[in-house]
Amino acid sequence: MRILVIEDQADLRRLLQGILEEDGYAVDVAADGADGLAKAQVWPYDAIVLDLMLPKIDGWDVLEQLRETHKTPVLILSARDALADRVLGLDIGADDYLSKPFERPELLARLRALIRRTAGQAKSTLTIKNLQVDLIGRTITRDDEIITLTAREYMLFEYLALHRGKVVTRTELYDHLFDENDETLSNLLDVYISYLRKKLGADVIETRRGLGYVIPE
């Protein structure tokens, strides 16, 4: 899962990046509205964390311009906590609104919910074959036994699981799993797939030659 953080305050930007990366997300950052809007229009982010008081283009305008072409889920993270601001933010097209100062677990939970809902998955657990996937605890259990995955392995599996029944191309996987500064070699994806198959069972993820990967419904 790949997230864009648009925040002008350097400390907070670094911090948000740290928090999200540690939670397994690929994170891109932008320090002003113009940069943020450009990135948001280029990359297929799974969610955007948007501050409102931004240099160059403010958050309201970023959101408005983005909504003309993109449906990317947006969470506004702002120091403005007046009711009017929250209502306006949601009306313009934000999917959620969190006011500063925020609590880290709440931010992460809201982002998880946002990503889950966008994928058409309202429940926080899902079952694939004999695997139980807990999207909140980020655990996969088989016969009450927890299977340990690395953060990146889990993100890869979660992406395929949330889009199960649909063939996901390698490019799509790259765009959603690695941030813009990641220079991972392309064959690393094959390595992660093979790890997942080893841990979860060979038949969970199928390869469609020339197309990509799919978890059948």
Partner: peptide, 13 residues
């Protein structure tokens, strides 16, 4: 709010 956010989240994180 912004500096409070930073202190709070940084410490928590």
């Amino acid at each position: 709010r912004t500096p409070v956010s930073v202190v709070l989240s940084q410490a928590d994180f």
